[in-house]
Amino acid sequence: MLRIKPGTRHRVTVTVNGRRHGGFAEARTLLSDFLRHELKLFGTHVGCEHGVCGACTVNIDGRAVRSCLRFAVQVDGAEIGTVEGLAEGGSLSPLQEAFRRHHALQCGFCTAGILISATQFLETNPDPTEDEVRDMLSGHICRCTGYEGMVRAILDVAGGSS
């Protein structure tokens, strides 16, 4: 059992994109705030803080989830993947490349969460239909693109890997 009184700060250690990070969080500190303002990993964005828009989606222990609906103290010891970790060795991942090719982003604010979702989605469903892609994307809001480029990009990558 672990108990963290309100107002006290608790040490949280996580592995983010393969690298160990440590910081302090209160019981109520949202993971999205911890990543951004404690670990200074600003690639994850905050769009609504009530779990609807999907901008803050990160990968925790293999699954794409909302980081605004998780407390930092819950992820002590977890493996976290954020947008900063998608380009391995400095070159864009195939999905990132496809997003660029298909103009799947404009302001790019929602993009980090969508890339995290789509990456895990393709791991579980390597050859999705367009309807399945759109269903996965329904957990995200983008106000710039109309989603069309994203759908094309994800299908393009899926087609390439299947």
Binding site: L2, R3, P6, G7, H10, A27, R28, L30, E49, H50
Partner: peptide, 13 residues
């Protein structure tokens, strides 16, 4: 839009 303070209790069992 941040939670009010609370005590966090983690149950392991």
């Amino acid at each position: 839009m941040k939670p009010a303070p609370f005590e966090y209790c983690r149950a392991d069992t």
